[in-house]
Amino acid sequence: MAVIKITEQNFEEEVLNADVPVLVDFWAVWCGPCQMQGPIVDELAEEVSGVKFGKLNVDENMSLAQRYRVASIPTLLVFKDGRIAASAVGLQSKDGLKRLLGI
């Protein structure tokens, strides 16, 4: 499944109102480890179904970073029914992401 670009505009529709779990990768261009997390998320998104994957640029969407108290990146949040179901801070392997999603 394609990875969606999450923004302040589409956050509610794509994440909070989604009918499947959504994994959101909070990242920024200047963050070294985030450059490594991106491809891992892309790869997993290709492999699994029934989960939505999104990337949220904290520079462009600071209010969402603040709302979810993101203070270190990469941060990965899994949303289910509009709520945070799982979270991880720092670079995660593909297996780590799977564990986060409970798959």
């Binding site: 070294g32 970073a65 203070a71 990146i73 941060t75 801070v89």
Partner: peptide
């Protein structure tokens, strides 16, 4: 509190402070 104020990388996370 790691990731919620405790950080191990200043250059990565200074932005939030």
């Amino acid at each position: 509190l790691e990731g919620h104020g405790v950080s191990y990388c200043a250059i990565c996370d200074a932005f939030f402070y």
